[in-house]
Design a protein around this nucleic acid. Structure first.
Lengths: 189, 189
DNA sequence: TAATTAAACTAACAACTGTTAGTTTGGTAG
DNA sequence: CTACCAAACTAACAGTTGTTAGTTTAATTA
């Protein structure tokens, strides 16, 4: 269906603009202008501005939730699980920095799906926390403030959308490796 | 001057709303409603919406720039400098989570002062990077990807405004300590 | 008491917002 | 050749936006 691909073009364009200025500051006329058409023409393909935001955010959030569940249930050491989480973030973000910006900055503008999104995020964080706790229990990780560990790693991974576009020369593979090194071993000698 | 304190009330209220929905989604009528007055009355105290944003962001950015310069030039080990940077972020953020949210999320909506802000931020990052590089040269820090180290620490520190309000029971002192431990030593055994 | 003044008010503006309705265009399939 | 249809268009809407102008209120000062 051609309508699908045109719709996708609109969503991609919108995500790019949302990253620059945020959902609220982007008008339908802005999106249309970038695409070289009039705002009213957008409605041949999408149903509303809100619908664009939902399409960008929910699919990403569901992907994270699904992959996290797979990692959590895998037969792996907790160190290995952590490395897979890092790779998950790097891979998804490298493939869609614009969408990740919206996920991080514009989720509060979701209307119907806000609670659903919050559930997904809460579920994700719970699994992340559990992996850290299990890693401490198995003496893979040091005893320390679990919340600070979680917060620090999650902040870094969630900020990748800012950083990756500035370092296009770095491969996702190398970045994952370096990130794992810093997040797990710190920076001391 | 009473006008100053009333102006400050407006700025604080605005910052609170900016944190929730972002600068663009907050209207002058929103701010006025929270203060129990009409939107037009705000203009007895402030000159424009843009002026509120500038007041919130620039003062914070200048504080960071000044304190960073002081730390950089201090007679301290690089480990100690890093710990002071961490404490700087924790202290300022704990004292003004709303303003820090605007600093992080709404800087792109600055008009006249956008370039000035970008210079301050660039200067800040340059000093931060230099401390890491000097720490590696003096063998205080491990050899590793400097950009990833910088990015990871900065992402964590910049996200504090999200995290601190959720953990009101933790003292800034304790948080700085735990953060330093995780950022420097990582989470491994 | 009279004058001053900080800080609120009402009313209005021009521009912009997301969205709808109905129409035109140009290429493709029967 | 005709019918169809995706995808653009023009025109318009009702509501919201930041902001200005001029006015009222209530407390303080001279």
């Amino acid at each position: 269906m051609k309508i699908e691909s045109r719709k996708q073009e609109i969503i991609t364009t919108a995500a790019k603009l949302f990253k620059e200025k945020g959902y609220s500051a982007v008008t339908m006329r802005d999106i249309a202008k970038v695409m070289g058409i009039k705002a009213a023409s957008l409605y041949n393909h999408i149903t509303s501005k809100q619908d664009i935001l939902k399409d960008i955010i929910i699919s990403l959030a569901e992907t994270f939730t699904d992959k996290m569940a797979a990692i959590r249930n895998a037969e792996l050491s907790n160190v290995e699980k952590l490395k897979q989480i890092i790779q998950l973030h790097v891979d998804i973000t490298a493939g869609n920095t614009f969408g990740m910006a919206a996920l991080n900055n514009d989720w509060m503008h979701l209307e119907d799906e806000l609670n659903y999104y919050l559930e997904l995020r809460s579920n994700y964080e719970k699994n992340f926390r559990a992996i850290i706790e299990e890693g401490i229990a198995s003496e893979e990780f040091s005893q320390g403030n679990v919340e600070v560990m979680l917060f620090s790693m999650l902040s870094t991974l969630r900020s990748l959308y800012i950083w990756i576009p500035k370092k296009e020369d770095v491969s996702p593979q190398q970045l994952s490796k370096d990130l794992a090194s810093v997040l797990i071993n710190g920076i001391n000698i």
